[in-house]
Design a protein around this nucleic acid. Sequence first.
DNA 1: AATGAATGAGCCTTCATTCAT
DNA 2: TATGAATGAAGGCTCATTCAT
Lengths: 208, 208, 208, 208
Amino acid sequence: MSTATGQVSPFPTPERRRRDRSAKREAILDTALELFLEQGYHHVTLNQVAERLHITKPALYNYFAGKTEILFACWMAGFEQAAEAIARIEAGPGDGLTRLRALIRDYGLLMTTPRGRCLIRFDDRDFTPEQRDRISACKKQVDAAFRSWIAAGIEDGSIRPCDPKMAAFVIGGALNWIGQWHRDDGPMSPQAVVDDFADRLTKGLATD
Amino acid sequence: MSTATGQVSPFPTPERRRRDRSAKREAILDTALELFLEQGYHHVTLNQVAERLHITKPALYNYFAGKTEILFACWMAGFEQAAEAIARIEAGPGDGLTRLRALIRDYGLLMTTPRGRCLIRFDDRDFTPEQRDRISACKKQVDAAFRSWIAAGIEDGSIRPCDPKMAAFVIGGALNWIGQWHRDDGPMSPQAVVDDFADRLTKGLATD
Amino acid sequence: MSTATGQVSPFPTPERRRRDRSAKREAILDTALELFLEQGYHHVTLNQVAERLHITKPALYNYFAGKTEILFACWMAGFEQAAEAIARIEAGPGDGLTRLRALIRDYGLLMTTPRGRCLIRFDDRDFTPEQRDRISACKKQVDAAFRSWIAAGIEDGSIRPCDPKMAAFVIGGALNWIGQWHRDDGPMSPQAVVDDFADRLTKGLATD
Amino acid sequence: MSTATGQVSPFPTPERRRRDRSAKREAILDTALELFLEQGYHHVTLNQVAERLHITKPALYNYFAGKTEILFACWMAGFEQAAEAIARIEAGPGDGLTRLRALIRDYGLLMTTPRGRCLIRFDDRDFTPEQRDRISACKKQVDAAFRSWIAAGIEDGSIRPCDPKMAAFVIGGALNWIGQWHRDDGPMSPQAVVDDFADRLTKGLATD
DNA sequence: AATGAATGAGCCTTCATTCAT
DNA sequence: TATGAATGAAGGCTCATTCAT
């Protein structure tokens, strides 16, 4: 949005206002998320969040209804990434095993990012019951993706017959655990880790 | 400890005093642990702990220096069980694979118990730095057990050559995850779960 | 205010501007008053007032200096009605008793209206000292009306000798109380109530 | 509770402890009540209450669950006085008119005391719904006393036939109003006021 | 060893008010 | 005139911890 002289108008259009607002919400989210992961939800005060953003505490309430709302938004932001990955893989080609491997890679990569870590580093009991319900439903979706592609692989012959539920538990556990031990400054790049995991976690499953 | 008349003396001997004290400490620990797992550390007040024990809050301070001390003691109680299992397996016979499987079973079982769950359901950042250091060392011990027996198995030929570190991450992740999803009132008994896991997690590793 | 073509000009004249402004002020007043009576001054936020008017909070500041100003204006609006009644009665004919009865009726009726209720349902301590002073003076005026007509009635023989001050307290208390118990959807119409009160409150006073 | 030497033991007996506690509760109540009447509920902070008692804010929570609980206790303390008066009169002798006059005197006197003023100077909407319900029931009791003795007086011939409900409204309003205008340092003693009111408010009612 | 009582520190949240646009 | 955004100030409440008894 620029004037004839090429300058950006100081009067924000409604459109730009919306973008600004959205950007600020994102900034709050990222900052809070950062702090939550650094210090743990209960050790983070809204003052800290505000300070790191160079605003004041009540200003946060223009964007979020409260502390748990921020926490919830963080979690959801992480889930969205997972859901996108699932949708992308679902939309793409490949047999059950291929898809499972793709999911392992994508989900594993997610676990090395702040947003992804939210999915498992927050304590369920810090959410409100309503939020918990929604989160529970989301978790089921992710779990269902793992199980369904394992089942699909068994069906299409790319995966040896086994209990999809238990297999999903093993795979999910190993992947979620990445979020606990992987350090960005560690010896292995996220990509290297997930490539390794994709092999390792399907070695026992693949039909050959 | 009874008098000649067969009655228990109302004057406790120093020995009995020590036992009583120890028993009370245990009771506090178990109660706190129960609450911590139920509601999450930060949502549990010392009043709740005291109430469930039918004592008063300050009484707790006769046995523990504070809330984090209790938390720490819970964690350590869990670790002791793991350490015992490791020692027992270490002392027993078997090649690397055998020992690894035994550890998977024992550690997995531990994860279905309250004490075991402490090991992964508590947030590191709720401990003091000193406690964190000790915990960190303990965790290394457990990790070392997994890795060393994998390495031993590779050496003795019971396990195919692979990166013990990554293998341990996968196994550890899958096992720790049990503590998150397993319910006592669920369809699978702890033993059934760990038997399944022992197979599943070593299938890809065993030279067979 | 229309143009030659019969259409209302979109450019408001200064006169119409003034009327608009005044109308908006009134609207704010009525809405705030409504909310104050519904929920109590301290439980009403300016946001609520603004929302009910479909405007935003800062817009209120174009018409009132602040929350207490609105409160004060509400009170004054109520007082004006009382003052008008007093003036009207004062200007009319009748002996002391007649006028007293008229005031009882008018003031009693006022107490069944939102504006009238303001006079006694607001807490004096929510006003600024300056406002309080003005209000105090206004209250004195009303009280003086009651007392003076009682005194006049004693003088002109329509009312039995008594202490006008105490008599005014009794009458005032009974009338103000109407604002607390009378409901529009109750069994007695405002008119019926005040007719009854006018009799009842002067029965003991009248000389016959 | 004194020792052989006549000194008060520094070790409080459970009995004395209970008395102490109760005395403290009373002290908090009276202090809070004082402040509430001085400044209005919403302008009083718990800090003020605590400061005036030379304790700290959280100490209040050992005796009351929160601010509204204190408010409610104040109200109830006032009601108890009214209820006692009613019970006392009920238990005593006298026809309807006599009892009504006694109630007017006692209730009127109550209105000149802090506890009594609570009954009408607090805003209903500052209570929780539960408290409001209980208060509502209590108010009904008081109202019922007025009405029933008026009705009784009509029955026993000491009071002229009239609508007890409206008569009670007039009397109640006049009495409650005392709490608003009477000052301890004013020209009329409480007793003088209520004697005057007892006459004045029943003059029109008495059969002769 | 245990308790009743008190405290200090802190945090979330609310809201009237202001200001740039 | 009206708005979106931000802020300062404040208040209620919680809770781990201490201390006298």
